[in-house]
């Protein structure tokens, strides 16, 4: 009886919901005004993705995704958000998001990006199931939204978050293809991400130190 909710059709339905939630979280990240909120949304989205991984692991009857879900949960829900918050507090920047494009417009544009992503996901011939194509759409949307966020936000810090939003998109793609990568490679990639966020945190700090601001519009000396 308790397993009744985990029949294949039900799982597909659950995955649909999680995809919707992850998409909405992505849009909200573009639309939110405070950096802290943005980090929390990122953690929440990663949590949703970890759940997605668990579900796919359950439906694929394989142990490997559980491992990936665990890593994601630990790394992206705790480690990376914690570190981002630490950097944010340490650098003492203004906690509001500053944008080139206004927030409602960017939300609308990201809606357009989502449409584009789902449209183009049909052209990538990962054949088949409803689940896969949904996850593919989600992943491309997140990548595009992350890229959009990086292009339109003025703070170095938001660029890092945008980058990790993109990374979440790529991670979704790994779920979509139901990874059974050798574990050592997965560990390597994970380590790279964590070190990446550390290094970028260091650079945000240095930008603050040398420019006395984290506004990347100041970074325009080098040209030509």
């Amino acid at each position: 009886m308790s397993l009744d909710i985990l029949t294949p059709e039900r799982i597909s339905q659950w995955i649909g919901f999680l995809v919707a939630i992850a998409l909405i979280t992505g849009v909200l990240m573009v639309g939110c005004r405070r950096l802290q909120e943005m980090i929390r949304l990122f953690a929440f989205q990663s949590f949703v993705l970890a759940l997605l991984t668990l579900l796919t692991g359950f439906s694929a009857h394989s142990l490997h995704p559980y491992f990936a879900a665990g890593i994601t949960f630990f790394g992206k829900c705790f480690l990376i958000p914690y570190f981002l918050t630490y950097v944010m507090n340490h650098v003492q920047m203004r906690r509001e998001v500053e944008t080139v494009v206004s927030l409602p417009t960017s939300m609308l544009l990201s809606g357009g990006l989502i449409m584009m992503a789902f449209y183009f996901s049909h052209f990538i011939p990962i054949s088949g199931t409803d689940l896969l194509s949904k996850l593919l759409g989600l992943s491309i949307s997140l990548v595009l939204i992350g890229l959009f966020m990086m292009m339109t936000r003025k703070k170095a810090f938001t660029e890092v978050i945008g980058l990790y939003l993109m990374e979440n998109g790529v991670y979704t793609l790994t779920i979509a293809t139901i990874f059974e990568m050798p574990a050592i490679i997965e560990m390597g990639i994970f380590l790279d991400l964590v070190i990446g966020v550390l290094v970028m945190g260091v650079w945000v700090y240095r930008i603050k130190q040398t420019f006395d601001t984290v506004n990347i519009e100041e970074l325009r000396k080098l040209k030509g």
């Binding site: 919707a20 998409l23 909405i24 849009v27 909200l28 639309g31 927030l103 409602p104 417009t105 939300m107 609308l108 990201s110 809606g111 357009g112 989502i114 449409m115």
Partner: peptide, 12 residues
């Protein structure tokens, strides 16, 4: 902002 968000919701 809020209505923009709901528009995107509708698109999704």
């Amino acid at each position: 902002d809020l209505l923009g968000a709901s528009f995107v919701l509708a698109i999704i």
